[in-house]
Nucleic acid binder design. Structure first.
Lengths: 219, 219
DNA sequence: ACAAGTCGGTTGTATTTACAACGGAAAAGA
DNA sequence: TCTTTTCCGTTGTAAATACAACCGACTTGT
């Protein structure tokens, strides 16, 4: 697990904490490492979780399939990001979504209560992590609201424009790569893949965008 | 401001804190009270916020109007709930939404940094509030995901069923009142009001639901 | 009591979408 | 290399939606 310390160091959760301090916290927070093959479920809807988790390798989707097989990709977790932070509270209840490995992945689980219960020794790095956790959850909150902004648009085209322009802004360039293939993007924006594909091509024909595979450019 | 202590006491943020302790914190956290008339803006998109706020009277909508005048109601804030928690981090940037008073309302603003920076005296109630804040933000996170679940449904009917059945479950009875009028519900679910109205009546004709004004019953 | 405004249901039409099915190109696997 | 699978664009059709317009019931304010 120690080999992931350099990665943990770059996460929002452990920002400003030194390697040695992280090493100490790994045992202090009862960290456990699990690995998953592409396609495996990390967590399933209905399970209970009392850990904060950090993805240290691979990629995860937080998603939900409904009764009719429609998939909604709620969120995407990249290396260094965390998930499970919505279930910190003891009375949080069961998970509402599945968490699936889209690539071979490695996840570290941390005991929640040991994080948010400030230890008696009140170590410097612990209170740092507490504050980091605040910021991280808070930021995820904003991310969710932004996503709401995308899918609350009425038409497929508007959803695409909303998503693509935010992505361009986030990556700070008009040409950028998105982390989804077509089906995944459709699931993320909650639209039909073929309809979306169609709309994308229309937009290209109208000279609004260019794209090839996952590479997009706004014009 | 002291007259709102009984209300604050029942909020998630101050759960488990006594009246006197809240009284102390009001000054300790630099609390400020503002009141708003129905229709007034509490905060506007683009502004900066470095406070956690609690609604102590009235009702707020967190919403966003796009260029074409389409309104999306992101969330509803009831008495005792808080907002602004997504902007705790110093680098959060500007507000992405408007916050509007739907009724005459009163809001208390608390300085964020004084909350999350544990004071040197490490008072009992302060660490309590820190933990409460964790749980509250975390819960809001879940609320947002639930809302995503509603509007990620493809048809108006599915959105309605998703929303109404969650509301029934939340209020723990098949007959319940919703906090929106038709237009607001449409804005909340991101659909057209008349189309939604139409769909509601179809569902009634099919014997799925009953309703009158804001009172609904699932059958 | 009257006028103005709000609210919710209804209808028709043009637009948009989902869905199913297909095919070619590229990638993955044997 | 050959086969299989994945990915993505295309098309046609049926279904669902947005939009505008209208009406009656009810509320609010004067």
């Amino acid at each position: 697990m120690k080999k992931y310390i350099p990665i943990l160091k770059r996460t929002k959760l452990f920002a400003g904490v030194t390697d040695e301090e992280i090493g100490v916290m790994l045992s202090c927070l009862d960290a456990r490492l699990h690995t998953y093959k592409k396609g495996e479920y990390v967590l399933r809807q209905g399970e209970h979780l009392n850990c904060i988790t950090v993805l240290v390798d691979g990629e995860l989707h937080i998603q939900r399939d409904d009764y009719w097989g429609n998939r909604a990709i709620i969120n995407r977790i990249a290396v260094g990001e965390m998930f499970g932070e919505a279930y910190i509270a003891p009375e949080s209840g069961a998970l509402l979504n599945d968490v699936v490995a889209v690539e071979d992945s490695a996840v570290i689980f941390f005991d929640v209560r040991r994080i948010i219960t400030v230890c008696s020794s009140a170590c410097r790095f612990h209170s740092m992590v507490v504050q980091n956790l605040f910021f991280a959850i808070s930021e995820k909150n904003r991310t969710l609201v932004q996503k709401l902004g995308h899918i609350s648009k009425r038409t497929t085209r508007e959803k695409l424009i909303s998503y693509l322009s935010e992505e361009a802004k986030r990556q700070n360039q008009s040409s950028f790569t998105i982390p989804f293939n077509r089906q995944q993007l459709a699931d993320f924006l909650s639209v039909d893949r073929s309809a979306m594909s169609n709309e994308l091509c229309k937009m290209r024909n109208e000279g609004l965008i260019e794209f090839e595979k996952n590479q997009f450019r706004l014009l």
